[in-house]
């Protein structure tokens, strides 16, 4: 994980996003301990205050929980995790669709395009 943050969004949010994605990819599993604030700051080259804010935000949406004296852990709550999965999917799709609309594709074209793409991709993997 090398440190490239872009400048149009607060770093704490970009860091939260990274952690969410790591959870979805299974790199971080339920009940895994996140690095301490200081270690996370060093790993990602950011201010410890930023990491603290990231952890606080994630705690606010129940993705992680802080256990007194032990650290910060990924939640075991399956419902929260499947909500996260659903949420990130919608977010990614809305970003994609917005860009497609900008370029002038309508809903039908996008839908057909995606279906065709997935069909081809499936064909590729079955060969």
């Amino acid at each position: 994980m090398k440190d490239s943050f872009h400048s149009s969004q607060p770093i704490y949010r970009q860091l939260a996003d990274r952690i969410n994605r790591q959870i979805l990819r299974g790199e971080l599993k339920p009940n895994d301990k996140l690095p301490s604030v200081r270690d996370m700051a060093i790993q990602s080259n950011v201010n410890p205050n930023t990491v603290q804010r990231t952890y606080r935000e994630l705690e606010g949406i129940s993705i992680v929980e802080t256990r007194r004296g032990q650290g910060t852990f990924v939640t075991e709550n399956k419902e929260v995790l499947s909500e996260l999965r659903e949420y990130l999917k919608k977010e990614e799709i809305s970003r994609f669709v917005e860009r497609m609309h900008e370029m002038g594709y309508n809903g039908k074209e996008i839908q057909f395009g995606v279906t065709a793409f997935l069909r081809d991709e499936k064909g590729d993997t079955e060969q």
């Binding site: 400048s7 969004q9 607060p10 770093i11 930023t50 804010r53």
Partner: peptide, 13 residues
């Protein structure tokens, strides 16, 4: 710095 990013969509540079 985070306000710059979220309110103005700008980094320091």
């Amino acid at each position: 710095v985070d306000d710059l990013r979220s309110e103005k969509n700008m980094g320091i540079v």
